[in-house]
Simulated assay, not measured.
Amino acid sequence: MSALTVLLLRHAEKPGGDYPGVGRTFEGKRDDKSLIVRGWQRAGAWAALLGSGLSADYPLPTIIYAARPEPVTAEASFSHRPWETALPLARRLYLDVNTRWGVGQEQALVEELTKLTGTVAIFWEHKAIPTQIIPALLGSQSIPGVPAKWDSDRFDVVLRFDRATPDAPWSYRQLSPRLLDGDSDKPFAELRTL
């Protein structure tokens, strides 16, 4: 079987948003490039959902990618949050988090992942998901409703892409599992076809 499912997730909550607190590493050390307590709660909730295998909407990942938690070039942005968000899921499934690619290397990431089969979970920076990863994944294919922008206040969404074979077109769904208090099941506010 050569089917591929790609689950795109934004890193969990960070300092300076709607929820209080400073960023903390998984060891509890203060770090502004890390998740806040609410973000660590979300990372655990993603692990419980995506690591359970109990829902056809959220199949068990066979590989997990996260943006590299260090800069890939001198001018590249980075944070620890994508890797930290992926970490509880990876530990639950006894997988390593693949951090080979960082922000700014989305084309190389997609070239690698589209050669795979199974289910791939990708935890990334929210601005690059709709502007870099999705266009590289879809190529010339246009799918109505695929967001061209990730709502800046949304950490509770999975963008799911499926294809049956390497030559088949992609299908798309926006999933909102409402894992934490205050999560929404509304589609992104700004939907434009890519």
Results as ranks from 00 to 15, higher is better:
P177A: 03
S52D: 04
P144R: 14
S184V: 05
H11P: 04
Q132L: 10
L138Q: 11
V110C: 13
R30V: 13
A76G: 05
Q107K: 14
A74Y: 11
L113T: 08
L54K: 10
R154A: 04
I63S: 10
L8N: 11
F155S: 09
R24C: 05
P61H: 00
P59V: 03
G39T: 02
A189T: 14
E190L: 14
A121R: 06
D96A: 13
P69Q: 09
L89C: 03
R91D: 06
R154C: 03
L191A: 13
P20R: 00
E106I: 08
A108H: 14
T73I: 12
Y65T: 11
W46T: 02
L60R: 04
R178V: 15
R81N: 01
I36A: 04
A189E: 15
W40S: 00
F161G: 12
I129V: 13
E27N: 00
W40E: 06
V6M: 04
T85M: 08
L109T: 10
F188D: 06
R81E: 00
Y65K: 11
A136S: 15
V37I: 04
Q105R: 10
Y172M: 12
S77L: 13
V72S: 13
L7M: 14
G16D: 08
H11K: 00
K127P: 01
H80Y: 11
G17S: 02
V72W: 11
I122Q: 06
V110D: 13
T165I: 07
E13S: 05
I143Y: 07
S2Q: 12
S171E: 12
A3F: 08
R178P: 03
L54S: 09
Y94G: 05
A45S: 07
L4N: 06
S140R: 11
G102F: 08
L180T: 03
Q132H: 15
T62G: 15
R42S: 00
A66N: 11
D153G: 08
R192C: 12
G23I: 01
V6S: 03
G145L: 12
A12G: 08
K29P: 00
L159I: 12
S52F: 01
L49T: 01
R163E: 11
L113K: 09
S142Q: 15
A12K: 02
V97W: 06
K29W: 00
S77E: 14
S77N: 12
L159G: 11
S55K: 07
V146H: 06
P144M: 10
V37N: 00
D162Q: 14
G51Y: 02
A43Y: 01
A189R: 14
Q174T: 09
E27K: 01
L54H: 07
W40R: 06
E106F: 10
Q141P: 08
E111Y: 13
V120S: 08
E111M: 10
K149N: 14
F155N: 07
A3M: 08
L180Q: 06
F188E: 05
D167K: 07
D31L: 05
T5P: 09
E190C: 12
G145E: 13
L194E: 12
I143L: 15
L95T: 02
P166S: 07
W46P: 01
K149I: 15
K186V: 14
L175R: 09
P82H: 04
P69M: 10
R173N: 12
P82N: 07
G53H: 02
I36H: 01
L95D: 02
R192K: 15
A45G: 00
S142W: 10
R68N: 15
P144W: 11
F78H: 06
